[in-house]
Design a protein around this nucleic acid. Structure first.
Lengths: 190, 190
DNA sequence: GCACCTACCTAACGTTTGTTAGGTTCGCGG
DNA sequence: CCGCGAACCTAACAAACGTTAGGTAGGTGC
C-alpha cells in the first residue's frame, strides 16, 4: 500500500493522487485506508519518510564499507552510486520523495524537513572531507550542485539503456570534482 | 491573470491551483475566466508556453548579441546567464514552467513538448559549437547535466543574497566546462 | 463457546472543484 | 440614441474529493 502510494506520487504528484486510486491499486476500498493511517497527510508523511530512510541507509552502508578507503574520490563516487541506487533500484520511495516532495502541502513538508536536514548534513560532512580546500561557505552550494546533478537524472536516465548506473555515478563524480577543482583554481589565481 | 496563474503554479503546483484562487487574486470571479480561456487546461497551456517563450527570447537575444564572439566559453556563459535571467528576472512564467511542468496532467504536457524540444535543440547546437571534441551521443547528457545545474538553482538561489546572477552564471559555466573537459581526458587516456 | 481484535466493507456526509447558462454593465461606432 | 460586443457576475450543476459512522468476516486467546 505504501508502495502503491509512492508509485502514484511519482506519476501524478500529491494532489492528483487519490486515496480511492491507491485503494483500487491494492484491491481494497478507500475507507479501509483509515484503519492503517489517520489521514491522507499521515500516509504520505510515511511515504516521504521512507524515501529518506532508503537514502540514509544507503549512505550509512557505504560509510562503513568504505571506512579504510584512502582515495577520497573513490569514496565520493561510492556515495554517488549509493544515492543513484536509492533512486533507481530500491523501489519508488526515494523517487517519490525527489519528484513529489515539493508538490505536497506545507504541513507535510515541515514534518519531513528534519529528516532531510539529517541527510544533507551527512553529505556536507562528506564533502568537507573530500574537498578540504573548499571554502566552507561554498560547501552547501557545492552540495546543491551535486544534488541537482544526481536528482535530475530521474527525469531522463534509463537504467536499462547503454549507460549503467556505475557509469553514471562515475560521470557525475568526475564532472563534479573537476568542476569544483577548476573553480578553486580560478579563485586563487585571480 | 496569466501572471497570477504562474505565481500560484510556482507556489502550489498544478492540481492545487484553483481557478477561484486565480480569479480572486486579480479581483474577478471564477466563471469570468471562461471568457478568456476555454478551460483550465487552455489557461495553463498558455502559461507554460510563455515560460518557454521567455527562455527562447533570451536565448535568441544572446545569440545575436554574441555573434562575433570568438571565445566560446564566454558565449556559453552568456547563455547560461540568460537562462538564469529568464528564471529569476522576467516574471514567474519560466519559474512556473520549470517547477510545475511535471505536476501538470499529460494532455497539457504533450501540448508543450514541441516547444520544449525547440529550446533543447538550440542548446544542443550551442553545445556542439562550444564543445566540438564532445562525442555527439554524449551531447544530450551533457545538456541535461547543465540544465539540472541551472534549473535546480530555483530551489535555493537568492538573487538578493551575496552571490549575484552573474557570479552564479560564471560558477555554473566553469564547473560545467571543466567537468566535461575532465571526462574527455579520462576517456581518451583509458 | 465467548470475547476480542484486526482488516475490511458499505454508504453516506460535507466540501470543493471545473464548468456552464443566462443575465448585467459599460463603452464605442454609426 | 440605438445596437453590439467585450468583460464580468450570479447561481447553479455534476463529479470527485477526504473523511466518518456503523457493520461484517475471520482469526486468536482463554
Amino acid at each position: 500500500m505504501l508502495d502503491a502510494a509512492a508509485e502514484r506520487l511519482v506519476a501524478q504528484g500529491y494532489t492528483a493522487t487519490t486515496l480511492r486510486e491507491i485503494a483500487a491499486d491494492i484491491g481494497i476500498k478507500a475507507g479501509s485506508i483509515y484503519h492503517h493511517f489517520e489521514s491522507k497527510e499521515d500516509l504520505f508523511i510515511e511515504v516521504f519518510s521512507r524515501g529518506i530512510e532508503v537514502m540514509v541507509d544507503a549512505f550509512v552502508d557505504v560509510d562503513t564499507a568504505m571506512n579504510g578507503c584512502d582515495r577520497e574520490s573513490d569514496r565520493l563516487e561510492a556515495h554517488v552510486r549509493a544515492h543513484l541506487g536509492a533512486l533507481f533500484e530500491h523501489g519508488s520511495f526515494t523517487a517519490a520523495h525527489v519528484t513529489a516532495f515539493f508538490t505536497a502541502p506545507e504541513e507535510i513538508r515541515s514534518a519531513i524537513v528534519p529528516l532531510r536536514d539529517d541527510y544533507e548534513h551527512r553529505w556536507n560532512a562528506l564533502l568537507a572531507d573530500v574537498l578540504p580546500e573548499l571554502d566552507s561557505a561554498r560547501l552547501p552550494i557545492a552540495r546543491l550542485f551535486l544534488f541537482g546533478a544526481m536528482n535530475t537524472t530521474i527525469e531522463w536516465f534509463d537504467p536499462t539503456g547503454d549507460l549503467s548506473l556505475d557509469g553514471l555515478a562515475n560521470l557525475i563524480t568526475v564532472q563534479f570534482l573537476e568542476g569544483v577543482h577548476a573553480l578553486n583554481l580560478q579563485r586563487s589565481t585571480r
